[in-house]
């Protein structure tokens, strides 16, 4: 992937034409465009993000952002800078979100909630949940419980969890944060 020559300038006229088609509703042009720019997005993210697990999330968030922002592309301008700005914004968003999450959650996961961070699958997570944690989870308000379960039990990304819960990513993060705080309080009380 990293050995692929960067021929963005050569491809720009095609991308521009496909993007104009996409703005007019041409699905075939849009699909060609997305498939062709996907490796570029991966390369740009790969060059700036060392967290391999997060890269694919960032790339997909960038694609979603491109989709939502497609009306802001102006045909008289080159496509590549517009696209790279969207990917760069997605990287910045991820870095900021990671910083916020680290600030809020770092002390909860390893110490208080050993069973709340299962390694991969939902089934394994269900097996690993301790009865104490299950009771604590059950006592949370439904919205907070759902947020914690979606992110830490089902291991969805924030964006996917937000879509599943039918709320904005920001609202989901707030719910999850309140849920962690409540869980920590509940489990801390149980230990004493």
């Amino acid at each position: 992937m990293h050995d692929e020559p960067d021929n963005s300038d050569d491809r720009d006229p095609h991308w521009r034409a496909w993007m104009i088609g996409a703005q007019e509703g041409d699905a075939a042009a849009y699909e060609k465009l997305l498939r062709e720019i996907l490796p570029r997005a991966r390369r740009q993210v790969g060059a700036r993000v060392s967290d391999v697990a997060a890269r694919e999330d960032i790339v997909q968030n960038a694609l979603v952002s491109l989709h939502r922002s497609r009306h802001t592309y102006r045909p008289e301008r080159p496509f590549s800078p517009w696209f790279h700005a969207i990917v760069r914004n997605a990287i910045v968003d991820w870095a900021r979100a990671r910083g916020r999450i680290a600030q809020r959650e770092v002390s909860i996961e390893p110490e208080s909630l050993p069973a709340a961070t299962p390694e991969s699958t939902e089934a394994r997570a269900q097996e690993a949940l301790s009865p104490e944690l299950e009771r604590a989870l059950a006592s949370l308000p439904a919205a907070q419980r759902q947020a914690v379960e979606l992110i830490h039990v089902e291991e969805l990304s924030v964006a996917e969890a937000a879509t599943r819960a039918g709320v904005s990513p920001g609202a989901l993060k707030v719910r999850a944060h309140r849920g962690y705080r409540a869980l920590r309080a509940l489990l801390g009380r149980g230990e004493r």
Binding site: L38, Q60, E155
Partner: peptide, 14 residues
């Protein structure tokens, strides 16, 4: 980490 592949994502967006 996302559980949706980039291929699926592209299909959804299209």
């Amino acid at each position: 980490m996302s559980t949706t592949s980039a291929e699926d994502r592209i299909r959804d967006l299209v």
